[in-house]
Amino acid sequence: MNKNKSILMVTAFALSLGFVSPVEAAGGAPDFGTCVAPKGEVIASYANGVHGIPGKRETFKGSDTVYKISQDVVLQCFCPENGKGIQTNWLRAKDLSKTEIAKLRKQGWVYIATGSVWGLDDVAYLAKNVEYTCKAGVATKGLANTGNLFLLNTLLLGGMTTAALAFLLKKFRK
């Protein structure tokens, strides 16, 4: 009896492994990559415009590109003028259990009842924002000194001045 019970438990455990969702299997959300080097198919791209960010009430102005990484995973890369970009990870909630959704919400994910208003499929999504730097401009106070005319003329002036002084000194000494 105990042996049968053990076999049953092992079988149930083995079967359960086959039905583990990607979220549970990965111990959290799947890999979205990063907007610094995004992967996947571009499904929307706007060079400029006003965009909404899930979980934020205000609107943002800048460029926006959306990548479809898989059927359930979408990456949104927003980049404003100041270069402080927002990466939004979108995860389809349709196949997630209530426990999984609750777990992700505790990790800061926002539940979106339908993705249709965001240009995605008309199903529930979970979204999470991550900041990234999207405009890596060069921070410097000025440009390179690529000429030497100022130095050249300064040296010539210095040479002529000292030569003139030497000549005058010699003349007045007489």
């Binding site: 010539l156 030569a163 002084l165 030497a166 000494r173």
Partner: peptide
């Protein structure tokens, strides 16, 4: 005064030499 004069002439030569190097560059 003579020493100062020599110093000025030397300085002048140094300036002109450095200017010449800048022209060479």
């Amino acid at each position: 005064k003579n020493a100062f004069n020599i110093f000025l002439i030397t300085l002048s030569i140094v300036f002109f030499t450095l200017a010449g190097f800048q022209v060479y560059l």
